[in-house]
Amino acid sequence: ATVHVKGVTYHFDNPEQAEKFAKRMAKELNGEVHVDGNTWHVD
């Protein structure tokens, strides 16, 4: 799974980790999470 945060890409072997990371980053950055298959975007 892949997480894109403000133009930076993070790779996770575990999709659950990717989801938790994306949601945590969105919270910290006051952003929104969008999911597209195995790819998470934090804007």
Rank of each mutant, 00 (worst) to 15 (best):
K27E: 13
D36A: 10
A1T: 08
H34M: 09
A1R: 04
V5L: 08
E28G: 04
A22Q: 01
E32M: 14
Y10W: 07
K27L: 13
E16M: 10
R24I: 11
H11E: 07
L29T: 07
E16F: 09
H4M: 13
Q17C: 07
Q17I: 09
V8R: 12
T2E: 08
D43W: 15
R24D: 14
G31M: 15
H4K: 12
V35G: 10
E32W: 15
D13A: 12
V42D: 02
H41T: 15
G7Y: 04
E28V: 09
A22M: 02
K23T: 10
A22H: 00
H4A: 06
G7L: 04
H4F: 13
T39W: 04
V35M: 11
T2L: 10
D43M: 15
P15S: 11
K20W: 10
A18S: 02
A18Y: 00
E32R: 14
G7A: 04
E16C: 06
V3T: 02
H34Y: 14
Y10Q: 02
V42G: 02
T2F: 13
K6W: 10
K6A: 14
F21G: 00
V35K: 14
Y10V: 04
T2M: 11
V8L: 10
H11P: 05
Q17E: 15
D13Y: 07
G37Y: 03
D36H: 13
R24V: 09
R24T: 11
V3L: 02
V35W: 14
A26Q: 05
A26L: 03
T39N: 13
G7V: 02
N30H: 11
K6F: 15
G7K: 04
N30I: 05
N38Q: 08
R24H: 14
A22D: 00
A18D: 00
V8P: 00
V5R: 02
K23V: 12
E32N: 12
D43P: 04
D36T: 13
N30V: 05
D36R: 10
T9F: 09
A22Y: 01
D36L: 12
D13R: 08
G7W: 05
G7R: 04
A26C: 07
A18F: 00
K27V: 11
V35P: 04
V8S: 07
D13F: 07
F21R: 00
V8G: 05
D43R: 15
K23F: 13
A1I: 13
E28K: 12
T39E: 12
E28W: 08
P15N: 14
K6S: 14
H34L: 08
A22G: 02
K23C: 07
V5I: 11
E28C: 07
A26G: 07
F12K: 00
A18G: 04
H34P: 01
K6Q: 14
D43K: 15
W40F: 13
Y10M: 04
V3M: 01
M25I: 12
D43N: 14
A22S: 03
H41D: 04
L29M: 10
H34W: 15
G37A: 05
V42I: 09
A26W: 03
K20F: 09
V8D: 07
A18M: 01
V35H: 13
K27S: 11
H11Q: 09
H41S: 10
R24Q: 15
T39L: 05
G37D: 05
V33K: 02
V3E: 00
K27A: 13
T9Y: 09
T39P: 02
N14I: 08
V42N: 02
Y10P: 00
K20S: 13
V5Q: 01
D13I: 09
A1W: 15
K23S: 06
E28M: 10
K27F: 12
K20V: 12
H4G: 03
V42P: 02
H11Y: 14
D36Y: 13
H41C: 05
V42M: 02
E32F: 14
K23D: 10
T9P: 06
D13N: 11
E32G: 08
G37V: 04
Q17G: 06
H11G: 04
L29G: 04
A26D: 01
G7C: 03
T9R: 08
M25H: 04
A26V: 04
E28R: 10
G37P: 02
D43T: 15
T39S: 13
H11M: 08
E16Y: 10
D36V: 14
H41N: 07
G31K: 06
V5W: 05
H34D: 04
G31H: 04
D13M: 09
T9Q: 09
V33Y: 12
L29P: 01
H34V: 10
V42E: 01
H4E: 08
H11K: 09
H11F: 14
Y10C: 03
R24S: 11
H41Q: 07
V3N: 00
H34E: 05
N14R: 08
H34I: 11
R24E: 15
L29H: 06
V33N: 02
V33P: 04
P15R: 12
G37F: 04
N30K: 11
D43A: 13
T39R: 12
H11S: 08
P15Y: 12
W40D: 01
E32A: 13
E16W: 11
T9S: 09
K20D: 13
V35A: 08
N14H: 11
H41A: 06
V5Y: 07
L29Y: 07
H4I: 15
Q17H: 11
H34C: 06
R24K: 14
E28A: 09
E19R: 06
F12C: 03
H11C: 06
E19S: 06
D36K: 12
A26M: 04
V5F: 08
K20H: 10
F12L: 02
H11T: 08
K6Y: 12
A18I: 00
G37S: 05
V3A: 03
G31P: 01
N14P: 01
E32K: 14
G31V: 12
Q17D: 15
F21N: 01
L29Q: 04
H4V: 15
W40Q: 02
F21H: 02
N14E: 09
A1C: 07
Y10E: 01
D13V: 09
F21Q: 01
G37N: 07
V33G: 02
T9H: 06
V8T: 10
T2Q: 10
